[in-house]
């Protein structure tokens, strides 16, 4: 295990019973099923205080959340929030959380509690209602996100280290 991995937490955000909103949580669950992980993995509802507590103390955080679709259902967007805020329009309008991810990251930044490296994997979703099924395209992106986190995230170049 490398030093960075030991200090990494992956946080899957979402509501397991709200269609595509479950994608973050599903990514976290599949990662955990792989076992023998070299990073911490947790599920979060998106509630800001718990989310902030889950990130605290790590050097690197990878947050996985559903974002509002922009025409490419299931597409993954890698967004580096280490130095600058997330683009609010991707997250706030359709967020089913109580104080958006955007605000939680900024509040952690203001308090000096944000990990040095912050990567958000936003997966485009289309249906977010309670009881909705997950779209096929979003479903197939779960495995891709898991693989990317396991095998490629290490090489991601953060604003912080540039």
């Amino acid at each position: 295990m490398t030093e960075t991995q030991r200090k990494t937490v992956v946080i899957g955000i979402g509501n397991a019973s709200c269609g595509d909103d479950a994608v973050g949580v599903q990514v976290a669950r599949q990662l955990k099923e792989k076992g023998n992980l070299e990073m911490a993995v947790v599920e979060e509802s998106g509630e800001p205080t718990s989310l902030m507590a889950a990130m605290k103390g790590y050097e690197r955080v990878i947050l996985v959340d559903a974002i509002l679709g922009h025409g490419a259902l299931g597409a993954m967007h890698m967004i580096d929030a280490s130095k600058s805020p997330l683009p609010a329009e991707l997250f706030s309008h359709y967020s089913t959380h109580s104080f958006g991810l955007v605000e939680s990251i900024e509040l952690a930044r203001a308090l000096g509690e944000l990990p040095l490296k912050v990567l958000v994997i936003g997966i485009e979703g289309g249906q977010f209602e309670p009881g909705d099924e997950m779209s096929e395209q979003v479903q197939s992106s779960i495995g891709k996100a898991v693989d990317w986190i396991l095998y490629q995230s290490e090489n991601y170049s953060y604003a912080e280290s540039r």
Binding site: N15, P85, A88, S92, T96, H97, S98, G100, E129
Partner: peptide, 16 residues
């Protein structure tokens, strides 16, 4: 998506 975050806005867990 231009412009800073909209005033104080707290989103709630509710169907969009």
């Amino acid at each position: 998506g231009n412009g800073a975050t909209k005033r104080r806005k707290i989103k709630v867990n509710y169907m969009a």
